[in-house]
Nucleic acid binder design. Structure first.
Lengths: 202, 202, 202, 202
DNA sequence: CATGAATGAGAGTTCATTCAT
DNA sequence: GATGAATGAACTCTCATTCAT
């Protein structure tokens, strides 16, 4: 391995350390608590050092949000083995909501706050996001192909499914459902998903 | 009109001025730009004056968020005249998404950021929120009663509908849909809503 | 009673209300919490009204501090009945320390913070302060006259006694005694006083 | 000298500069005038810089109060050479009062205001305070051992002495002695101390 | 590569006091 | 006599970012 390569590897490791630390703080204390200084403190480097690896704070959050998507992709994969596409679709829905509710601050970063770095269109990389979406879309296509759900353009169906699960999860996370009893809310999740998926059946 | 009444009215007007200004800044520049000082600057009062009318910043945002709900309630009412409950339900869905997309930063305040003042449970008033939800729920009940949609507990159905429209709107507002072409995204709204509501039909 | 007199009486009542309220806040929450606004809030008048009765905040604290002295004078009087002057002197010392420790925030106002209004020499009235001191001095004189304590100029002796009790009380109130165990400190009070008074005996 | 050491030294110098400046303002204008901004202004740094060296304002005052104790300890040491313990004790008393009256605002910080940082018990360091007290206590012990003063528990005697000198000094500093003539007050100091120490003699 | 000192701008909040009504 | 709206000047503290070393 040449010098350049080692440098590259070291650089990547440091970037990862920074991003992971940011994610850690995020998960433990919420996104408001993520600051350059706190990251620097935790990894025992100086704030200035951070800027040798990232252009700005937004960049770090961007990377963290990519990582989160990656973890989410793993979660999505757990349904791959289910043979029946409709069952797989339903399972994906449950996995989605479950991931969101179990990792609320991560989901916050992924879907609830304004996308980091979205302004710089030339720098924003949609590919992870697309891949995530493709998992859903592929299953939907299969369902349609096998006539298991009401037919339509696969993007339309995928969007509908996605909207439902994201909507459900985000209303819960952001505490917008006007039901005093918190437990009642969480007991609604399954029935709502069931109803939603039943409705899709051909 | 007595002195007390005039004072009361003046006070209410000032409160409204503050809240409206906060909303204005919010709409024009996003919620991050709303600060006590900027509000004070705009209305040409000193920062201290704000505190004569509101306990703290959170209180202002809370009020602004109530106002937004009120405007939203008005929007909801526009469907009241539609005789057929299923058509009314679909119309409500469209009104919902339309309101969200036309007033994105307002919707941000209403549904996407953490609720202002939610920590102070004793001070948070769910009533407006509940009323908004009731509009939906009532229509849903009627649809079920007339056998127009697949039957289930009205809260389950309402949540499903709400989740769908909120999910759709919020994914768009937060620019999470991985389709480069923005126009394409907005052209998806109607098909997705149509598909979603068709699926509900009994 | 003529109009002028009633006005005067009303005025005095209002002044008393203000001062008493200030004292109340002081005793309950410490001197830092005494603010014009909080006084006004408690008595349900507007801040402006306070200024009809007092020139400024300092004036209120000044009055409150006079009142405190008056209460203290009452406490001093409880020893008047003791026939033996030396015993009376010792009793006065105990009453002093006891008053200070039982009314710490009041004592704060009376002796630990800079005197309110002391800058305006022409307005500061020493008379209450002098009267308080005279109680001590008179007893001291009697002790000297009867040859019960080591003789000296009565002001010298009085100052020595006063310094001791004030010093003891204020070191305790301000938590300057470097003994970890708080209880130990309070158990020192009596022995120290005993030792001090024993030393004075002729 | 290595880099780390120089950095450490620089850091200490800056801390000292801040503390000294705080003390300066304190001495010149009183403790109320000490604010982060004023310190920053004087040393021509931005307010934020202060926070690179101290956690908060309380920390600065705490440090300043330690420094004051240190200076006071030096003053105490000037009596060490006096061979006779009783004379040494009397000299210490005079040094104490003299220090207090010559450095009134410093003494304010050391003994008259609420102790900085006392709430954070785990962070408050009593050691300087204890050392100061030990100087007194050691002399007292010697006096007792040699039968020069009336015997008692050394802490009781030390507290009595301390209370007397602190009481005297603080009544003068806080202008509580109701004698119009200021000079008269200062002419009382020596007689009172003499009387107090004479009384202690065995 | 890394430092860490420093900045400048800004945040929310509190206060004693004034004054037109 | 009383109001209470308003001020202006403070306050402590936090942050992302820069840059000479």
């Amino acid at each position: 391995m040449g010098i350049t390569q080692r440098r590259d590897r070291d650089r990547q490791e440091m970037r990862k350390l920074i991003v992971d630390t940011a994610t850690q703080i995020l998960v433990e204390e919420g996104i408001d608590q993520v600051s350059i200084r706190r990251i620097a403190d935790r990894i025992e480097y100086s704030p200035g050092t951070i800027y040798l690896y990232f252009e700005d704070k937004d960049d770090i959050l961007y990377e963290a949000h990519l990582e989160a998507f990656s973890a989410f992709l793993d979660a999505e994969m757990t349904v791959a083995a289910i043979p029946d596409p409709l069952e797989r679709l339903q399972a994906l829905g449950r996995v989605y909501v479950n991931f969101a509710l179990s990792n609320q601050r991560m989901y916050d970063l992924m879907f609830l706050i304004p996308v980091p770095r979205i302004q710089n269109k030339e720098k924003y990389d949609w590919s992870v996001s697309i891949r995530t979406y493709q998992v859903l879309r592929t299953i939907v296509e299969e369902c349609i192909a096998q006539g298991r759900i009401k037919p339509n353009h696969p993007d339309v169906v995928s969007m509908q499914v996605w909207a439902t699960v994201h909507g459900l999860a985000s209303l819960i996370i952001r505490q917008r459902i006007p039901m005093v009893d918190k437990e009642l809310v969480s007991r609604m999740v399954d029935p709502v998903l069931n109803y939603a998926f039943d409705a899709l059946k051909a």
